[in-house]
């Protein structure tokens, strides 16, 4: 038998069989073909998208665990009382004969005054770097603490992106010195401190020095006032007035220097840098905690990646739409061509 004969033989099969084959089989229920691979892929996509949407509701698009620079704990640099800048011994005058006698006396007075001073004058400054996953809350708490201690905010800068979770806040606070330590410890409770630098400057000598000069100048002024009252000639009077005015100028200068010192001493300065992070820098060094941290970071990073991918795909939706339209058009043309060929 050859193939044509077989073909002919097939033609001779029972009529009933041939008729049966003419009835279109209606598949109940199934509208499209069951393709396991496609279903698995679709399920996987849904799972991924679902976890991405549910995963990080507040974090936005942070980079995986923004590591703030160092893990170092507080490094306190206690600098013992710095030597103050040299004050030019800018005494009133060198040439006035009547003045010289006055000088001698007031110098004596000021040394006496020096012996009286016992309290230390120290300027405290600190720099704090903090990170937090709950940026807004931490910031609010921090500012509240500042107010609580009776301090105020001197300056601030802030910036960063909410979308990427990289907000930051730099500020310098003035805290009353007696509550300085208290503030530092409470700040550590508010967020995760990654860097702490403390500095103290002993300005007692400068302060005392200034005090001494001021009081000696005061004494001089008194003397000059007395002399002015006793002055007989107009020339003398003019001369004395000249001395007085330059003296007063000096007094003002020292006075303002002292005020600056006093301000620095009474209100210590704390500079705070707060950054928003997705995950906190680990505090302990145990292997277990590092392992769990690695897991957390991995998961966070993965979710961020997925979110990024989805957003990226969505952001090019016009291109995708065009591509889809093109594909449909091409498929339709091909189908028409195939059916035309078959006819």
């Amino acid at each position: 038998m050859n193939k044509e004969q077989l073909f002919e033989a097939i033609g001779e099969v029972d009529d009933s069989l041939v008729e049966q084959a003419a009835v279109k089989q209606r598949r109940k229920g199934r509208i499209f073909h069951f393709r396991p691979a496609a279903w698995v892929a679709a399920a996987a996509c849904c799972l991924v998208v679902g976890t991405a949407i549910l995963g990080l509701p507040k974090k936005g698009m942070g980079a995986a665990g923004a590591d703030t620079a160092s893990n170092a704990t507080a490094s306190s640099a206690q600098e013992a009382g710095g030597a103050g800048p040299e004050y030019a011994m800018d005494m009133v005058t060198e040439d006035a004969a009547p003045g010289a006698a006055v000088m001698g006396e007031s110098a004596q007075n000021s040394t006496a005054k020096l012996a009286e001073v016992t309290t230390q004058k120290v300027i405290y400054t600190a720099e704090l770097e903090m990170e937090s996953t709950e940026y807004e809350e931490t910031l609010a708490q921090l500012l509240a603490k500042v107010e609580e201690m009776g301090g105020y905010q001197e300056s601030s800068t802030q910036g960063g992106s909410l979308e990427y979770g990289t907000r930051w806040y730099n500020a310098s606070f003035r805290i009353p010195s007696d509550r300085y330590e208290e503030f530092l410890s409470s700040a550590q409770g508010v967020g995760n401190v990654t860097w702490l630098s403390q500095d103290s400057q002993d300005v007692t000598l400068e302060y005392v020095d200034l005090e001494a000069r001021i009081s000696s100048l005061e004494t001089q002024r008194q003397r000059l006032d007395e002399l002015a009252a006793q002055a007989e000639t107009v020339e003398d009077l003019i001369y004395i007035q000249g001395q007085l005015s330059s003296l007063e100028y000096q007094l003002e200068s020292y006075g303002s220097q002292m005020r600056v010192l006093e301000n620095q001493v009474s209100m210590s300065t704390v500079t705070v840098r707060l950054s928003e992070v997705a995950t906190i820098t680990p505090v302990t060094n145990s292997f277990a905690s590092r392992v769990s941290d690695a897991f957390t970071r991995g998961w966070t990073g993965f979710l961020d990646g997925i979110q990024g991918l989805i957003l990226g795909i969505i952001s090019v939706w016009p291109v995708l739409l065009l591509a889809a339209v093109l594909v449909v058009v091409i498929i339709t043309i091909r189908k028409k061509r195939i059916s035309k060929n078959n006819k």
């Binding site: 038998m1 004969q5 077989l6 033989a9 097939i10 033609g11 099969v13």
Partner: peptide, 11 residues
């Protein structure tokens, strides 16, 4: 070759 017989077998 008998087409009918073969046809029956195929049936």
């Amino acid at each position: 070759f008998d087409a009918k017989e073969t046809g029956a077998a195929i049936s």
